[in-house]
Design a protein around this nucleic acid. Structure first.
Lengths: 238, 238
DNA sequence: TAGGGGGTAAACATCCGAGGTCTCTGCAGG
DNA sequence: CCTGCAGAGACCTCGGATGTTTACCCCCTA
């Protein structure tokens, strides 16, 4: 195994064993390199890799630190990974989201704080009548993020965020700028909000299922019909 | 932004844009470095980082290649991330698994091929009467992996595998080597298998829920009771 | 005494070039 | 046709030199 990979494992072990706690600062490059028995160049490769997945955080002129290692931070790195997937696997991701989103919505109906529910309701009215794609994506993203956050499970929240990140969502929205889709999405968002506000987990779950399944169905038909047809579909999105 | 990070984005874009397809070979280090306008050292850091998340695959003496980019490969990298989490967040991961596993089991009851169902059944009998922890983990892992695989959704399959990777599972199993836990797990595994073999998705879903909830409940009580008590718990595991 | 500015030192960022090791490939021999 | 042996190409590792950024302390000023 290359020395760099060994270094990655060593640093990983130092963190898992507790020798390095979240927020701790690593020894300086030269020192750590000598301690791990490799050159600074190789060590830097290891650090850079751990940096990409948000385990380490290097600050020039200061030092290298262990991040908080919170689930949201580490799972955020997954967004980077999801970006690589093309349309052919989007359906698989969406299918997983169809499993998680209803569960999260039901949990939110039970656990969400009243003030957060109020903020969720406020989001519904913030969208203009003829919003841009960017505004749509932003509002849609925030709506679902708030619900996921309301589930009280940070892992679930981060996972949902990664699965339907901005990239994937934008791709979908670009496909349905028709007025019908926007209107239907608004209705469904409102219904989900009502169910959460009424503290009805099962109703909330069902609306969420309907909501995601709508996108899934539309996306499926679009992909099947390929490039040509399918321009008259008007499903709700995301 | 550091030149290395720029390089990471550039390579990422080259892949997403289709300039580099899965399986393609990258230009050699020196050439690519010149093309991206940086030194070989910095480029190597970028490549190493993309390597850690399984986007690139470097083979010494040969060259650097784009991986297949299949979901299972990319999500596998998440296992690395999950390893960093300690007991305090294990429950959150398990809660997500309790959402996904029943869904996957139900899907498996519908879609799994007969021959795979047969192999699943064979797994039940492969465990000795007093298995080692290693054997338990291996068998348990394989059982659930086969079910997840039977769901027909590679994303769901990889996600489940990452969420309850070998590390986490071993940690749990080490806590309950009692005969009672082993026996109960066997019964539940058998019940899940029967439901799948009978092509009863809802029954399979319920058994899976019971199964995972059992671990969750045991783990929760163990964590609450902290170090001392809790040695007489005998739940089914994983 | 409190606040601001400058300077120093520490740490990371980047680059370069040399030598080592591994793998693939083509060719010769059995 | 199979096997073994170089040779070339590509990545691996190292060490040092130089640039940039940041944190921190000291001094000056109000």
């Amino acid at each position: 195994m290359p020395v760099t990979d060994v270094a990655i494992d060593k640093i990983k072990d130092m963190i898992i064993s507790g020798e390095l706690a979240p927020g701790d600062r690593l020894p300086k490059e030269a020192e750590l390199a000598q301690r791990l028995g490799l050159s600074r160049s190789s060590l830097r490769e290891a650090v850079k890799a751990l940096c990409l997945i948000r385990v380490l955080d290097v600050r020039q002129g200061d030092g290298t630190y262990v991040t908080s290692l919170e689930p949201n931070l580490l799972l955020d790195a997954m967004t980077f990974v999801v970006d690589f997937h093309r349309d052919d696997t989007v359906l698989d991701f969406l299918a997983v989201r169809r499993i998680l989103e209803p569960a999260a919505t039901a949990m939110a109906a039970l656990h969400m704080r009243d003030e957060d529910v109020a903020e969720l309701g406020a989001l519904l009215g913030e969208l203009e009548d003829s919003p841009t794609v960017e505004a749509l994506v932003a509002n849609d993203l925030q709506f679902h993020r708030k619900i996921a956050d309301g589930s009280g499970n940070p892992v679930l929240c981060s996972l949902l965020e990664s699965l339907s990140g901005p990239t994937a969502r934008a791709r979908i929205w670009r496909g349905l700028t028709q007025e019908g889709a926007v209107a239907r999405t608004r209705e469904q968002h409102a219904a989900i909000y009502d169910a959460i506000a009424a503290r009805e987990p099962e109703l909330a779950r069902s609306w969420a299922t309907v909501h995601v399944a709508g996108v899934e169905q539309w996306l499926r038909s679009t992909l099947v019909e390929d490039a040509a047809a399918g321009d008259d579909a008007e499903p709700a999105a995301s």
